[in-house]
Design a protein around this nucleic acid. Structure first.
Length: 508
RNA sequence: GGUCCGUUCGUCUAGCUGGCCCAGGACGCUAGGUUUUCAUCCUAGAAAUCAGGGGUUCGAAUCCCCUACGGACUACCA
């Protein structure tokens, strides 16, 4: 039976979304769009204690920036709402009750403190405590208490949780699209809390209920969920929803670039690359974490980079637009092992995307920087300049260091170049060249160029020697595009001024 | 500790139905070339005894087993 593809991205609003989460969202999106399915954003905020203001808005904004769009969700609505679990709160209780009625769950009155104590005493004996089939009959719950006691405790409003009663002897099979068939025996699993004493469901209950109610067809999520997948499968069985249970795909983790381990929020700024799509300021501490957007990455590049972290098309094509990714994507081609983020490759991707922008577009992005610096220039002229230097940079923010000399005379001169090129007679030759430029009237760059070349040849000078020194006084360093193109853009007067300035300031 | 997942060049990876693989591509790196400089670009090169060990087979990176290592999970967090 073919069923409608409906996938969800279900973050919890506990802070900014990191790139591992973004990749999960992306893969869900690619999968859904390829199959003409529906992409849903559901906010999993069942933990009131970890709620961070602004996080939900952040998630929506950053995914919007990246071009990951939702068909249903907190921000766009839809027929399966509400899409925020805290808004669905009244809904969950009945499902927990249903499980209790069917013998799949029970009340547990143990306090967190008493459980902690038991845990400690187990540890003292080098054993790990688990609330499971081996221990539940020695704890305070509706399995060990009489019906009357339970009723009384409930009537007296004693705090309690509802736990899942994991079967004693059953092989639980999780069919995963990436890992294959994973079998876990039920006796190894614990009686997870489904319903908390604060009246909220835990992730486990809420996610099964919501996925079922929202008719989710495929659950594509991070590998960190794989250990709890057997519990989820059991829950579907307990509810009698096996027939419509979603298919699973557990994505490999994104690892720290150095060493091993899951990429964490702290790694980014420590290693010099963003872990977040856009900048985030912690509302409590005020601490700022950098984002791809602010670091100068194009959203298309970030998508491309992320798509390739754990997936490949099986061809040698590396540059993919979102449309192309939607066509090419397949869960079967997702790798099993974790991937480390490679900063150099990320830069390369951005460079490729930067080149796809013409001068006009780059000028638009660069203009605000110049305005900030108090530089006046027409966008037409800036477009020409951007076109001239775009092959030399990977990020828009590098534009300044490749173009400053179009706007300002050099403040200093690259010592390496001075040392290598500046000779005793350099000043004299540059003085002559200055005079040659002066004499070209009206000023035509090609004529000026030819005359300078002629001067070099007539005096049997070293071409590189003279040209590099001329560049040094004009630019201040051994960088930049064709020198005479630069001169034509800054103009004759400015060029001559810079030559004289250089002659004055450069001493050997 | 227990459970589960993973392991091919520095990194991302191709390889999945065994022979075309003494392992291919990309980034990075090195060298040479182009260029008046830098960058780009072009060419070449180094770089994985396919984690290790056992099988199965005429033949294994590819199938099976064991070991090692790494990771995730192990909360009234998601």
């Amino acid at each position: 039976m073919e069923r409608k593809v409906r996938v969800r991205f279900a973050p919890s609003p506990t802070g900014p979304l990191h790139i591992g989460g973004v990749r999960t969202a992306l893969y869900n999106y690619l999968f859904a769009k390829q199959l003409g399915g529906t992409m849903i954003l559901r906010i999993e905020d069942t933990d009131q204690g970890r709620f961070v203001p602004g996080a939900e808005e952040y998630i929506i904004d950053s995914l919007t920036w990246l071009g990951i769009k939702f068909d249903e969700g907190v921000h766009v609505g839809g027929p399966y709402g509400p899409y925020r679990q805290s808004d669905r709160k009244p809904l969950y209780r009945q499902y927990a009750d249903q499980l209790i009625a069917n013998g799949w769950a029970y009340y547990a009155f143990d306090t967190p403190e008493s459980l902690d104590e038991i845990r400690k005493s187990f540890e003292a004996e080098k054993k790990a405590f688990q609330y499971d089939v081996t221990t539940r009959l020695s704890l305070r719950n509706s399995l060990t208490l009489s019906q009357e006691e339970v009723n009384q405790l409930l009537a007296e409003n004693h705090p309690y949780v509802i736990r899942f009663k994991m079967p004693e002897d059953e092989d639980i099979i999780v069919n995963d699209h990436i890992r294959g068939r994973v079998v876990v025996h039920s006796k190894l699993l614990d009686d997870k809390v489904l319903f908390k004493s604060d009246g909220m469901p835990t992730y486990h209950l809420a996610n099964i209920v919501d996925d079922h109610l929202m008719e989710i067809s495929h659950v594509i999520r991070g590998e960190e969920w794989l250990p709890s997948a057997p519990l989820h499968v059991m829950l579907y069985k307990a509810f009698g929803w096996e027939a419509t249970m979603p298919e699973f795909a557990h994505l490999p983790l994104l690892l720290k670039p150095d060493g091993n381990g899951k990429l964490s929020k702290r790694d980014g700024d420590r290693l010099g690359f963003p872990v977040f799509p856009t900048q985030w300021q912690d509302p409590k501490t005020g601490e700022i974490s950098s984002g791809y957007r602010e670091s100068g990455y194009f959203p298309e590049a970030v998508i491309n980079i992320l798509a390739f972290l754990g997936w490949n098309p099986g061809t040698t094509q590396e540059m993919f637009t979102m449309e192309e990714l939607i066509k090419a994507f397949s869960i079967e081609r997702i790798s099993k092992s974790g991937a480390k983020f490679d900063l150099e490759k990320a830069k390369w991707f951005n460079q490729q995307y930067l080149r796809q922008h013409n001068g006009e577009e780059l000028a638009k992005l660069f203009m605000p920087v110049l305005i900030e610096k108090g530089i006046n220039i027409t966008s037409d002229k800036l477009a020409v300049i951007c076109d001239l230097v775009k092959e030399r940079i990977s990020f828009v923010k590098e534009l300044w260091e490749q173009t400053y000399f179009f706007f300002n005379a050099p403040e200093s001169y690259d010592e390496q170049v001075v040392k290598k090129r500046w000779k005793e007679d350099t000043a004299a030759h540059l003085d002559s060249i200055s005079a040659i430029l002066e004499a070209v009237e009206p000023f035509e760059t090609t004529i000026a160029h030819d005359k300078v070349i002629a001067y070099i040849q007539e005096n049997t000078l070293n071409m590189g020697q003279i040209m590099n020194c001329l560049r040094l006084v004009i630019v201040g360093a051994g960088i930049g595009p064709d020198l005479f193109t630069i001169i034509s853009l800054i103009g004759k007067e400015e060029a001559i001024k810079r030559i004289k300035k250089g002659i004055n300031e450069i001493k050997i």
